[in-house]
Design a protein around this nucleic acid. Structure first.
Length: 688
DNA sequence: TTTAGGG
DNA sequence: CCCTAAA
């Protein structure tokens, strides 16, 4: 039996792609990418942490002074806050101290430790934990000043708990897109800590996402599709040639140009319909072997029942259990069927719903927030949290904004009853990580309309107008650049929740639509599918976001980010003891394109079976995602495919001509191998 | 790390 | 595609 738990973080509606994860180091140069990805995780966490911290600050400053008494533990403060207002806890992931009672430093992280993860995390390493508990110190922040700074999330580290966080400030008269706009990082009294110029177009990437990912983003966003054209001949491995005494398969046409196939894009681009982007994001195939399905479904949004039990209420994760027996059993029973098994690939994925955009309640007055999403009730619940009145006086031509909250969509998690609490925790953690890890960007909504023109200044847009601030909202949006590829529309492996009360596969809807704002360019259409994309990472072929100019950088504005130590951040995921069964994500399925098959066949004709490394080097050296094992497997399936009737074949049809060559080459090389063995046997016999 | 095969 | 025994 499976229980489905609904987790309501009090956030709602943004979509986050799953986190591509390198399955193993030996698979090639994925380390760097993984690092980047995980950096992004941290970014997202940072963002959340900031919001949480900010809310805590405001909460505290608005509540009676007793909370701020220096003598009280931060934990106590937090708890009081939570106790006082249910909504409040929805802003924070977790506010209770870890069970070990070890102060307030470890929170979520402690769950990892208790599950056999050796690494110890401190709040320093874990932004969320850190912020959750540290904001209690914010009482020493001047309220007025703080509100002016609009987002000075206090951060603290294990070593320096009183260190003030930085925040970004966007100069009012920002130049247009493509030009630089100054972003100042200042402390609460306005001292400039950092100053740097950001291209406006990249501002969000450089701020909300994180300052440290911008490079990566630019790399992905701006790098023109690397054309690994067929003219880039591959160099045949040196000293390997003497390895080819066996000769080539007669049918091999050696005069053919040996090309370096980088069919990354081929397999990705060509097979990815442009509609892919309309389907919201495609969840990660599998988050582990556990039969756990996590999905986000805005349709399920409800105001989570308030738990009376204080202990429960201290956690902001509310679980609602439903029976999901059929789902589980079906998964198991289908496991051995290759055909049905395809459906399993996405079973435990985190899904996001079309309600993917979450409104950021930003307001001058507590009750006012931009709330365009259908989950209005829940939204209000969380956005109504406001402490004091924020002062938005535009002194020195700066716009001051106070973001009340971000909302996270509901999380659905399916986990066997027999699962341990620890695994549940990890599951939730993974879900959260998956949600946040895919990269987010911020959109700006003014009076219900999406502000798309990044070139406009705040003044022109009216954002500097105090009145309009009431109608200003931010949205968290998935970053298409990092979104995993949606499955083919017809792909049955698309994760379909089995028996959820409501259909969950509502991908076609654009998040923005659900939120009342249409943003068709939210998912830029694929550009030039024929292009080759360099893929030295495991990420899914991402749309070569050429249209990322407008919407993807909608909001260069005014979102504070916490100041975290990059080092600390980078550490967290890396130290997670990779429990293969749970953490290692299955590589995304990337069917071989015909051209890839062609290259493979040709290489095998030349080199024979049994030298897959050479085949790889020869024909797939640039296709980083094709390992020699993959090639060997593909050849295996090709042989099989060639032997079965065309009616039984599935997937993209391979030209019969190729299949014939497969059979020929296979027969030839099998014979050669047999001869080789006979020869060796004779030799050994002679020696004996 | 590669190969070779079963899953 | 994954997992692994063997080489």
């Amino acid at each position: 039996m499976v229980l489905q738990k609904r987790l309501d973080y009090g956030f709602n509606g943004y979509q986050v792609p799953a986190i591509p994860r390198a399955s193993r180091s030996a698979r090639g140069r994925r380390g760097s990418f993984r690092q980047k990805v995980e950096d992004k995780q941290m970014c997202a966490f940072e963002l959340l942490a900031t919001v949480a911290g900010k809310l805590l600050q405001e909460k505290e400053s608005s509540s009676d002074s007793s909370n701020a008494s220096p003598g009280r533990s931060q934990q106590a403060i937090v708890k009081d806050n939570v106790k006082q207002e249910q909504q409040y806890e929805e802003k924070v992931f977790k506010v209770e101290p870890n069970e070990q009672g070890s102060s307030d430093e470890t929170v979520l992280v402690s769950e990892l430790e208790s599950q056999g993860h050796n690494q110890s995390y401190s709040s320093k390493d874990f932004p969320i934990a850190q912020n959750d508990v540290s904001v209690g110190l914010s009482s020493d922040i001047d309220n007025a000043d703080q509100s002016e700074k609009a987002g000075c999330a206090k951060t603290s580290t294990a070593n320096n708990r009183n260190e003030l966080g930085k925040f970004l400030k966007v100069e009012r008269d920002s130049p247009g897109y493509g030009q630089s706009c100054e972003v100042r990082v200042v402390d609460r009294i306005g001292r400039q800590l950092e100053a740097r110029s950001h291209k406006i177009g990249n501002l969000i990437n450089g701020t909300v996402r994180d300052t440290f990912c911008s490079e990566d983003l630019m790399e992905l966003d701006n790098k023109p599709p690397a054309l690994v054209g067929s003219d880039s001949s591959i160099e045949v491995p040196k000293c390997k040639d003497n390895h080819i005494p066996r000769g080539s398969f007669p049918g091999f046409r050696d005069d053919e140009k040996v090309v370096s196939r980088d069919d990354d894009e081929n397999s990705s681009g060509c097979t990815q319909p442009s509609t892919r982007n309309m389907k919201a994001f495609r969840p990660s195939p599998r988050l582990g072997d556990r039969r756990i399905r996590k999905l986000l479904a805005s349709k399920y949004w409800k105001v989570a029942p308030k738990l009376k039990d204080r202990e429960h209420s201290r956690t902001d994760m509310k679980l609602i259990f439903h029976n999901r027996k059929t789902c589980y059993t079906r998964q198991r029973s289908q496991r051995n069927s290759p055909f049905k098994r395809r459906k399993l690939f996405g079973q435990s994925s985190v899904l996001t719903s079309e309600g993917g955009i979450s409104n950021v309640g930003i307001s001058k007055s507590p009750e006012k927030g931009v709330d365009g999403d259908p989950a209005g009730a829940a939204s209000r619940a969380s956005s109504s949290v406001s402490g004091k009145k924020s002062s938005f006086q535009s002194r020195d031509s700066h716009v001051k904004l106070s973001i009340k909250s971000f909302r996270v969509p509901e999380l659905f998690i399916e986990i066997p009853e027999t699962a341990t609490v620890g695994s549940l925790k990890r599951t939730v953690m993974e879900a959260v990580t998956a949600i946040l890890g895919g990269g987010l960007r911020v959109g700006v909504v003014l009076k219900g309309n999406k502000v798309r023109d990044d070139n406009k200044t705040l003044v022109q847009t009216g954002i500097s107008n105090d009145e309009k601030l009431d109608n200003l909202g931010f949205t968290l949006e998935p970053n298409p650049t990092h979104a995993p590829p949606p499955m083919h529309p017809e792909d049955p492996s698309f994760p379909v929740p089995c028996d959820t009360p409501h259909p969950v596969t509502r991908y076609p809807t654009t998040p923005a639509l659900d939120s009342g704002m249409s943003d068709t360019s939210l998912y830029p259409p694929m550009t030039d599918l024929g292009n080759f994309i360099e893929s030295d990472h495991d990420s899914v072929p991402s749309p070569t976001d050429s249209s990322a100019d407008k919407t993807s950088q909608d909001s260069r504005a005014l979102v504070a980010i916490p100041t975290m130590s990059m080092d600390a951040l980078a550490v967290v995921p890396l130290h997670r003891k990779p429990r293969r069964s749970e953490l290692v994500q299955r590589r995304i399925r990337r069917p071989f394109s015909v051209s890839e098959v062609e290259a493979l066949v040709q290489a095998v004709e030349k080199l024979g079976t049994g030298r897959w490394r050479d085949v790889k080097l020869r024909a797939f050296d640039n296709a980083k995602h094709r390992t020699y094992v993959d090639l060997k497997d593909k050849w295996k399936t090709l042989v099989h495919t060639a032997r079965i009737s065309p009616q039984q074949r599935r997937g993209e049809p391979v030209p019969q001509e190729l299949l014939d060559r497969v059979l020929s080459a296979h027969a030839y090389w099998s014979q050669q191998q047999a001869k080789q063995q006979v020869k060796q046997q004779n030799e050994t016999c002679l020696l004996l």
